[in-house]
Write a protein that binds this DNA or RNA. Structure first.
Lengths: 193, 193
DNA sequence: TTTTATTTGGAACAAATGTTCCAATACCAT
DNA sequence: ATGGTATTGGAACATTTGTTCCAAATAAAA
């Protein structure tokens, strides 16, 4: 009986995400979101509540899409140490090839809003915990099979890796220079040896 | 003959900087700036041109004030290696004690605007070059007197340090946790040994 | 004191903002 | 087909936005 929605929510979130990612929350108007998504105002408000609701959903969408993309693109069969290398090199490549220099949407959201918006801050904390847990599993594996030094606790190393990725994203946004980013990764990952 | 300005430009920039720092460029209205600075709209426009001009001046003011503050607070007589330790510990302390979790104004400006605003991006690049140069001088000194390992080139190490500071600022803004930040610094600085 | 140049407060403005609302539309089960 | 329900486009709204403008106020020189 009811008319079905004429759009795919995922596709809409993808388009909204791209605008927010590039321009930030406060730098993006509903007008731009209407144009970017192709939806009408009523459909946006009916589906997402308001601008803030759309932003939160876009950010969650981004976070989940990032995780999925990683699992797909990460070559299988790599040792834990090589997996970490690949991960960092991958992020260098992304920084060097994004013509818009958008950086990381989660990081941008954090610096723009986390201190004033609890729901955004919670997403940032969740993301941090998730990334640390991922690194932790890789490092524990590496320390178990002797590929990674046991000089530091796995937890400390995983925090260090997450820290480096954050820095890398900021610097890649400021000045995407190959040799700079590679210097950083080389030194940063040397603590694993 | 002319009437003198009734305000001190530095004090005004300080107040404007604090609002921009906390809320971002697009998150701050002229109305809030009028209230925060105590100036009237005409005085602001007459002195700084427009909102963007005031922002740029506030950011430059921040950058210079940071440099001055560092030179003042940095204990004299420290060896280069200890100076680096102090620097990182100092930034941990700042992150842990800022009730507003504002992070770094320069970094916030970068992630909000650098990809869309060339003048802001230039300030970010200048700041990066300056910080790298500072670290470079410290590291060269340390490598010369044997305090710092020569395993990596001084340039690569200085880039690494700048990278770590950026990460530290983001994580300190996300979740200011002492043991997390200290883990990171301990591992990050271990490459100097 | 008078003159002069500038600053200052605040009114005013047009444009942009986020949001609401409703009539028209369009789908789906009957 | 038809009826009923949800979606949709777009007009409309009240605020808020950044900026301009000018008369009044003010400080310093003459």
């Amino acid at each position: 009986m009811p008319k079905a929605k004429q759009f795919n929510e995922g596709e809409v979130l993808q388009k909204a995400r791209d605008v927010f990612w590039k321009q930030g929350y406060n730098g993006t108007s509903m007008d731009e979101l209407v144009k970017a998504t192709g939806l009408s105002r009523s459909s946006i408000y009916d589906t997402f509540g308001d601008k803030h609701g759309l932003y939160v959903k876009s950010l969650k969408y981004y976070s989940e899409a990032q995780t999925e993309k990683l699992l797909i693109e990460l070559p299988s069969g790599l040792s834990s140490r090589k997996r970490i290398n690949w991960f960092f090199q991958h992020h260098i490549d992304v920084s060097l090839t994004d013509p818009n220099r958008k950086g990381c949407f989660m990081l941008n959201s954090t610096t723009e809003l986390a201190n004033l918006d609890n729901s955004i801050n919670q997403l940032a904390v969740d993301n941090m915990d998730q990334m640390e847990a991922l690194f932790l599993s890789w490092i524990k594996e590496g320390q178990a099979n002797g590929e990674i030094s046991k000089r530091f606790k796995a937890k400390a190393l995983s925090r260090h890796l997450f820290n480096c990725i954050n820095g890398l994203k900021v610097i890649g946004q400021t000045k995407p220079d190959k040799s700079t980013l590679e210097d950083i990764v080389k030194v940063s990952l040397s603590v694993l040896d």
